[in-house]
Structures are given as C-alpha cells and as structure tokens.
C-alpha cells in the first residue's frame, strides 16, 4: 500500500493539533524523508487508538519491528513508539502515542501482532507502562520480583 493511502487512513484516527490563528486543525500525520529520519511516515495517535493503528498496519502487511517507550519527564508523559516496516516496500511507519506518567495505560496490540507480546512486556519492565488486556504482563528481562523501572528518568543510576 503506498504511503499516501496510508496517510489518509491514519488521518482518521490520528491526534489533531489544535487550530491556531495561522494554521487550521490538522491530523498529526507527517511524511518524512527516509534519508534524514529513517522512516517515511510519522503518525501520532491517541493512546486508545493504537490498536486501530496496528490494524491498519496489519492490513497493509507491515511487520512490527519494535515497541519503545520514551520518558518525557518535563511534560509528565510517556511516549510509546511503534516501529513498523513493510517487508515488500522497505517503507517504515512510526506510530506514536502519549500517556500521562501518572497513569501510563494503553491497550495491548498483542492480539493483532503476537510479536508485540514481548515488546510490550519489555516496555512494562523498563517504564512501567501498563498494556491493558495483555495476556501476561510479567517481567521479561528484569528479575521476576522487580518493582523498579530503570528507564524512567527519575530512576537513579
């Protein structure tokens, strides 16, 4: 599926930036230069729409490459980054979602991409992000009794 078709599909579920006097309200779907960024489409969706985004990617036969968290301390938010790549096209799509740091919850996509299971467990280990509906959200890389989340910026290390 070409990138511009994906763009219109994502536009329906993406976060909209509020209209400013200069620019109208627009969904956060940006085409980026692969050579500069390493991905072709940058999408930001609301946290509860990540499953919808995963479904769009699944229909377009994308592969789930990784799920990552980023701790934006200053904004008191976690950003969850989903990296998708199209095996046939060599195209890459980044789907981002933000959750508040206090209640980091968003739905799991492991039912659409079973490979997300481990990536989500890893993000739970490192950031304490809770993926609701995940079949077994237990520590993967950390010890089974770990109650700390080392990649949070306030984790002393």
């Amino acid at each position: 599926m070409p990138i511009n078709m994906l763009k219109t599909k994502f536009a329906e579920i993406a976060v909209c930036v509020a209209a400013t006097p200069d620019t109208p309200s627009a969904p956060l779907v940006t085409e980026t230069a692969h050579a500069a960024k390493g991905y072709d489409l940058d999408v930001t969706v609301p946290a509860d729409r990540v499953t919808g985004a995963a479904r769009i990617m699944d229909e377009a036969a994308f592969m789930l490459e990784a799920i990552t968290g980023v701790d934006w301390m200053a904004e008191q938010q976690f950003e969850i980054v989903y990296d998708y790549t199209a095996v046939a096209l060599g195209a890459r799509v980044v789907v981002r979602a933000r959750v508040p740091r206090a209640t980091p919850e968003l739905p799991t996509i492991s039912r659409i991409y079973p490979g997300a299971n481990w990536h989500e467990r890893e993000a739970h280990d490192f950031f304490g992000i809770v993926f609701t509906g995940h079949p077994e959200l237990i520590p993967l890389l950390l010890p089974e009794d770990a109650d700390f989340h080392p990649l949070r910026k306030d984790f002393g290390a």
Binding site: H34, A61, M63, A66, V87, Y113, P114, G115
Partner: peptide, 25 residues
C-alpha cells in the same frame, strides 16, 4: 508468522520472503 513476530534475517528469507535491509532500505 515471521511478519507477525518481526522475525528477520535468514529466518524470514528461509520462509520465502526476500527481505534484506541492504536491499529494502
């Protein structure tokens, strides 16, 4: 399965998908 789990390299190429980062990107 390779696609759903994100398996790459010789694993996906052994499953008939010519996916190689050196060619794709």
């Amino acid at each position: 399965n390779c696609r759903k789990y994100g398996a790459t390299g010789p694993v996906i190429r052994g499953s008939g998908v010519a996916y190689d980062v050196r060619k794709a990107e």
